[in-house]
């Protein structure tokens, strides 16, 4: 495992911790999109089917279990926790996320490595992850005041994607690891979605003002 891959995994893990911390410490999920969180839960559940069949490393297994359980816990909190669920910005979180699920499913049925349940599920999870942040970005744009932790959550998620691309470039040259075109294209699309956010995050950091995305 190279340093970029590890940095990517750690920023991903960090984003989850920041989100859990925000919900736990403030007992609030305002500014967080339940739709994005549900999509991530679906992404992890469909991608990590190999937990049942393959063992790659203890590191991989633990990280997969962490991502599955944390995403389910966040969804549970936002839907069912007696205090937290009342802070959910339901009226602003209106992205039709099932269109993303349907689109990803169609793509996965058309473009996959092999026509097996596992491979189609894997491709589906890659496509869905690429666009799963969209409801969250739309919600951020609608929220007049983005609190620091929510901004940091999205920042770390974006950093994770950027590190993964560096990881693929590194592996391409050092291992002749031809990470197939499916994750390459989906990964580039996904990282591109954050470009705008990064720009405004940088401005707010530089000028030391609260993050606000233009409508």
């Amino acid at each position: 495992m190279n340093v970029f891959r590890f940095a990517g995994d750690m920023t991903h893990l960090f984003s989850v911790l920041v989100l859990l911390l925000k919900i736990y410490a403030t007992k609030s999920c305002s500014g967080i999109s339940l739709k994005t969180q549900e999509l991530y839960a679906l992404v992890f559940l469909t991608r990590y089917l190999d937990l049942l069949t393959d063992f790659i490393s203890l590191y991989n297994t633990v990280m997969k279990l962490v991502f599955i359980s944390s995403s389910l816990a966040i969804v549970w909190c936002m839907r069912a926790h007696p205090v937290v669920r009342r802070t959910y910005d339901k009226d602003q979180d209106t992205f039709r996320h099932y269109t993303l699920v349907a689109g990803s499913l169609v793509l996965a049925l058309l473009f996959h490595d092999r026509f097996t349940i596992r491979e189609v599920c894997w491709a589906f999870s890659i496509y869905l992850e690429a666009v799963a942040i969209l409801p969250q970005l739309v919600l951020l744009q609608r929220s007049r005041n983005v609190d620091n932790l929510t901004g940091q959550y999205v920042f770390f998620l974006g950093a994770y994607r950027a590190f993964y691309i560096l990881n693929w470039i590194y592996r391409y040259f050092t291992e002749q690891h031809f990470s197939r075109w499916i994750p390459w294209i989906a990964g580039l699309v996904q990282t591109g979605l954050y470009a705008d956010f990064f720009y405004y995050y940088y401005l707010s950091w530089k000028n030391n003002v609260k993050l606000q995305l233009p409508a």
């Binding site: 891959r5 995994d9 991903h12 190999d50 393959d54 790659i56 490393s57 991989n60 990280m63 997969k64 991502f67 490595d113 092999r114 894997w122 993964y164 990881n167 690891h177 031809f178 990470s179 197939r180 994750p183």
Partner: peptide, 10 residues
């Protein structure tokens, strides 16, 4: 049929 690459990333 090409040997399938192991999916070792998260």
């Amino acid at each position: 049929d090409v040997e399938q690459e192991q999916k070792d990333e998260l």
